[in-house]
């Protein structure tokens, strides 16, 4: 399943990448791939902007506008200010989200 095309904010700076492969390990959607000795974005539309790759790249090669892809959270943040976050504990299953 894919979400909207070409909107994910994921960026990879090939110059900073040392090819350690950590980002491939943490990505839950197989967005990244090794090409030679560098990581490349193989499937941008698969990225859900969770930020795991950015947080775990020791070389600062990845940037992504990390956040929750949840309409209710974003609407709440527009109405009441603050960052969108999944604080609606009355919902969502324990297995995949809150």
């Amino acid at each position: 399943m894919k979400y909207l095309s070409k909107v994910a904010s994921l960026k990879l700076n090939a110059q900073k990448c040392v090819g350690c492969g950590m980002c491939l390990e943490v990505c839950p959607h197989n967005v990244l791939r090794m090409e030679g000795r560098k990581a490349v974005i193989a499937d941008l539309d698969g990225c859900m902007e969770c930020g795991a790759c950015m947080t775990n790249c020791a070389f600062g090669a990845i940037t992504v506008n990390k956040g929750v892809g949840c309409a209710a959270a974003i609407i709440n943040s527009i109405l009441y200010g603050g960052e969108p976050s999944c604080d609606c504990s009355g919902g969502k299953n324990g297995d995949s989200c809150c």
Binding site: M1, K2, Y3, L4, V7, A8, S9, P28, H29, G46, C47, M48, E49, N65, K66, G67, V68, G69, C70, A71, A72, A73, I74, P84, C86, C88, G91, K92, N93, S96, C97
Partner: peptide, 12 residues
Amino acid sequence: TGSTTFTGMSGV
């Protein structure tokens, strides 16, 4: 979108 495992914030 809040319950899926693949929607990102930019898209929403």
